[in-house]
Each structure stands twice: as structure tokens, then as C-alpha cells.
Design a protein around this nucleic acid. Structure first.
Lengths: 211, 211
DNA sequence: GTCTATACGTGGATAGAC
DNA sequence: GTCTATCCACGTATAGAC
């Protein structure tokens, strides 16, 4: 089998798709550190320890990188909080715990939130990318819906509103709280709002009556 | 007194602060039309029918223009919806009407929402401007608090939570809904979420017992 | 297939002419 | 005080050497 062409190369011949991944990761690092505006092709390549020219045989244009970023890992970090759901006795308690877990993840890595928002706004302006935020939102929405369904199932609860409506409200509330927090950076305020939202959302549930 | 130095000039001597205002207005137009990234000093001057060089004797740097933008009119359009409050019999009804008025304003001029968000994010990255979002949020928060107090007063209601907590929740919910809507552009979904939020917030009020 | 050097356009800011 | 011409740095993209 070949030693330097298609698979793994001898020493420095590292690339094909792996370079793409490295560039995406490097771009994310630069964006988190210095903001999306500072993530130039030069800066990204430098961060990835690649020559500047490497960029354009991995991506046809910078927009392709944006698309790659929006399509991959970012929203994964968002719903990484959901799996650790603890269905407690009290619905309000459960939802509050859920939100607090989510919030802990946000607190731990706020830059990712900022970058995600910046990327979405950038995409909203570029006609070529304008569908990506809608896709991303829909994907996230669907995930929240299924998480909610599982959650309600395990807690033996049912909703008094459509699941998709609650999902939309949850997403809006969470992103709203995050967005406010990015401005004022007062964690206590954010957490307080979050707890109250949890309590309000809990009033939209009721014990499931078994048929 | 002088004809061309300090006050109003003969014909073309229009400038001093008025140029600043024109540039700010032009910048806002460009940003709303083409996004914040397209609002270069050249594009702004062209929009304002000024030579490019005019920019730098009105503003020492571009950041000064950003600061001017964030300090002025933008959030005014946000709370322009609040004054037309109609204190109806049912609290839920009143709050829903309030939110719908706000939403109508957003719908009528969504670009402003986008620009505002973009500006805030830009400011969050620039160390020199990083305090502006906090100020802006605080100013808006205070406005919502006083609006809420007046509203509760007129409707003879009292809150079961601190006013500032509800204000924070209202701001978060509204900005969250707007932010989601910017992605999916489904007005029905946004309005549905808004109505449900109104209903939930109404449960945080109760009739005021006169002492 | 990998990388260097470079082209081309643009952005912010300034020096100096009117 | 107003504006033109220009400087310099940087961004994307490409042609072509290894």
C-alpha cells in the first residue's frame, strides 16, 4: 500500500480532511480568544501551525469555514447539559436543576456562547449562509423537544401546552438570560432569573393520569 | 458676530457637531441595510455625502462612533412600545397586549434589533467599549422597572417577586424571543411564545389589597 | 499533494493642499 | 475648517515552486 499518497504519510504528509478539522478547531480557538473579527485566515493558519496558503486548499472560501463551524460541535456543547437530568419528585425542582446544570456549562465556557451568537449574526447577513441559523435553531429545537419528552416521561408528567411551544420558550428564555448576562456579567442575577423561569415552566406541567 | 466660524455658516460651512450626527445617522442606515461589517468609514461617509476625510475630524477613531451609536437612539426604539400600555381588567390580558405592542415594533423594524445586537457583541470584544453593554443593559433595565411599577400601579396589582427580578425576566424573555425569531423568522411561533410568557408573568401578580 | 510568494483589493488613519 | 491624496497594514485568493 502507498506510503505517502492517500492514507497516512511518512512524516510531514499529514493532511487531507484532518487539516480541515485542525483549521476549524484553530478557528474556534481564535474566535473564542479574540473574537470573530480577529479570526482572519492568517490568524487561523498561524494558530493551526500551518502556512497561510494551506487555508485555500482546505476550504474554497472563508464562508465554507463558517458553514463548517456552524454545522458542527458548537450546539453540541449547548445540549451537553441535558443528558444529566435528574427527575426529582417536584417538577419545579427538576426543571430548576436542569437549568442550573445548563447554566454551569455556560459559566464554564462563556466564550463559546459569544462565538456562537457572533457566528449566527454573521450568517444572518451573508445570503449564502442565511439558512444555517434556521437549520441550527431547528436542530436545537428538535433536541429540546425530545429531551423534554423523555424528561416528562421519566417524571410521569404531562404538559398543558404543546411540547414544541414549551421548547421554544425554554430556548428563548435560556438564550435571553445568557445574552443579558453577557452584558451585565452578574451571575446571581442570571441565576435568579433562571430559577424563576424554572418555577414558571413547572406550572405548565401536571401529574400524568395513567389510562 | 462671525459669519463662518462658530455658529451657522454662509452656505457650505455646515459642520461641527451636526456632521457627527449625520455620520451617526448614516452609519446606522448602512448597518441596518448591509450589516455592521459593511459599515466602513468610507461607506458611512459616502452614505452621508461627505468626503472620506471628513470622518476623522468628527471622530478621533471608529470606536468613538461605535460609542456614540450605543449611547444614543437605539434603545429608545426598544422602549417606545411601553408607553402605550393599556391596563385592562385581566392582568394576563394587559401583559399580553404590552408584549404584542412591543412585538409589533420589532416586526416593523427588525434590522434595528439585528444592528443593536451586533453592536453589543462588538463592544463586548473591544476592551475600550466593554462597559457600554453593561450601561445600556442597566439603563434599559431601569426603564423596564419604572414602566412595570407604573403599570402595576395603574392596574392596582402587586408583584409576588421583586420588580427588578421580573424586569430581568421580561428583558430576557423578549430578547430571547427576538433572537430566536431572527433565526427562524416564524412570526407565529414567536408570538405564541410571547403570549405564553405573558400568561406566565401574569401569575406573578395579584390584586393589590389597599391598606 | 504541500507549501511559498505574491497579487489585488480594501480598511483605517494622516499629512498637507485648498 | 474642509477636503484630496496617500500611507501602511491586512484580508482573501491564486499562481506556481517544491
Amino acid at each position: 500500500m502507498g506510503t505517502a499518497s492517500t492514507r497516512k504519510a511518512a512524516k510531514k504528509q499529514v493532511s487531507a480532511d484532518v487539516r480541515r478539522e485542525r483549521l476549524v478547531a484553530a478557528a474556534l480557538r481564535v474566535m473564542k480568544r479574540d473574537g470573530i473579527a480577529a479570526a482572519t485566515t492568517r490568524a487561523i493558519c498561524a494558530e493551526a501551525d500551518m502556512p497561510h496558503g494551506a487555508f485555500h486548499y482546505c476550504f474554497r472560501s472563508k464562508q465554507e469555514l463558517y458553514a463548517a463551524l456552524l454545522s458542527t460541535d458548537i450546539n453540541l456543547t449547548l445540549d451537553a447539559a441535558w443528558p444529566a437530568v435528574v427527575p426529582a419528585a417536584d417538577p419545579a425542582e427538576s426543571i430548576r436543576a436542569l437549568f442550573r446544570t445548563y447554566w454551569a456549562a455556560v459559566q464554564e465556557d462563556p466564550e463559546t456562547q459569544l462565538v456562537l451568537t457572533e457566528l449566527v449574526h454573521l450568517a444572518l447577513r451573508e445570503p449564502e449562509l442565511s439558512e444555517l441559523p434556521a437549520w441550527e435553531h431547528r436542530a436545537y429545537h428538535d433536541k429540546v423537544v425530545s429531551h423534554l419528552e423523555r424528561f416528562m416521561d421519566e417524571a410521569q408528567l404531562e404538559l398543558t401546552v404543546a411540547t414544541r411551544v414549551l421548547a421554544e420558550m425554554v430556548i428563548s428564555a435560556l438564550s435571553g438570560v445568557v445574552s443579558s448576562w453577557l452584558s451585565h456579567r452578574d451571575s446571581a442575577v442570571a441565576m435568579e432569573a433562571l430559577d424563576h423561569f424554572a418555577a414558571l415552566f413547572a406550572t405548565l406541567t401536571r401529574p400524568r393520569r395513567s389510562a
